[in-house]
Design a protein around this nucleic acid. Sequence first.
DNA 1: TCATGTGAAGACATTCACAGCA
DNA 2: TGCTGTGAATGTCTTCACATGA
Lengths: 229, 229
Amino acid sequence: MNKRKIPGRCVERLIIYRRALLQDRHLHVPSIFSHELAFACRLTAAQVRRDLMLIGYSGSPTSGYEVKRLLSSIGALLDPPDMREVAIVGMGHLGRSIAAYLVNRSPKIRLTVAFDVNPEKIGSTFSGVPCHSVERLAEVVSSKGITIGILTVPPEHAQAAAEHLVQAGVTGILNFAPVCLHIPEKVHVENIDMTVALEKVAFFACRSQRRKGNIDDHSSTSNIDQTAP
Amino acid sequence: MNKRKIPGRCVERLIIYRRALLQDRHLHVPSIFSHELAFACRLTAAQVRRDLMLIGYSGSPTSGYEVKRLLSSIGALLDPPDMREVAIVGMGHLGRSIAAYLVNRSPKIRLTVAFDVNPEKIGSTFSGVPCHSVERLAEVVSSKGITIGILTVPPEHAQAAAEHLVQAGVTGILNFAPVCLHIPEKVHVENIDMTVALEKVAFFACRSQRRKGNIDDHSSTSNIDQTAP
DNA sequence: TCATGTGAAGACATTCACAGCA
DNA sequence: TGCTGTGAATGTCTTCACATGA
């Protein structure tokens, strides 16, 4: 119940459970067993049960977990009571496509405003999100009570942009720039570093060179590898 | 030395160490101490020393680690002997900007070819990468010996696209689609799930609401929070 | 019989703390 | 003195295994 003691990994999985449960195939079924949910998310049944235990949800040994009730339990834990507003800084190609991708993904999280240095972009809207000059960042972020920032600026500007966001009152940053940000540790930073991810895949992909035509492997549970860690 | 026993987290950090070392500020200095490298990467000095121990690199207590020699040690471990070719599937806005972002990032990893279903995109090139029809995926991927696939297709097509990639001989997938892929576990999958990351930031960002004007915090070492998880 | 909830064990990752050395 | 390298301790996360209950 008290949010602070839920481990980060568990939060990620809860988000994934919710997404799986919201798919038609699960949403229109009264209940689901731990091993079914585990299979959908590529985890073990024990992991699922442990996570649900952590959020204080109980199922029944006969029918498993009630989907609707489980969804509201997860929502009660994950969703903030109030709407969270998000700003995105850097409206290059990456920023624009990420904005388009993330807009309207969650009922409690709204991408409200964008910032860029390029005068041609200032004043226009992208995916319905108005773009301002970064010079107005502090003013707009504070006045709208924005608490989350997405960084899609070039690496050399990421540190400065992050500092501006923090100074304006942001308490969480989703950083796409391939740099390590130096900001107060009370601000939660989530790094999405595609260059690292690609190199990591390249490193781990060099085992058994596969001959073609063996998609027959249906080995069941394996571990999640979620971005993150 | 033998790659298989290096933990995934450590690999991520090694990639980050290398990136930090390649910055001008470090590249033009003969040597670096563990705490300096740690600071640049927002880690602890002990963590850095432990990681470098794992790859069998030794520094000197007086001058620390020789930057150039350390770089080649990391490269010897991370870099494949041969060039790795990468295919990207899905050339929507996200796919195109990710392609632009990842092209020419690493000397040993080359984004070679793209695929899409849209006839208007087939035949053109994006960031210098030629785009083919997905119908030719198996043929092109096998013939070019491509071993890594990037998935930027809509979620409902991700599973099928992943299976095609695996069947064509891919052994590593960087998946941007917000779904859990069901493929043989010998294929390394790295998930970059922006929707999960954003919700996670929103969850953890709701602590102490900050008043403005306190960027003065210079508290030192904290943990990495790399995408992944 | 089969699935849940959970203590205990195990695996994994990080940090501590100190010997050894220049 | 101040660093590295590393055994040991600690902390975190995952899996095992079984009591319990329908």
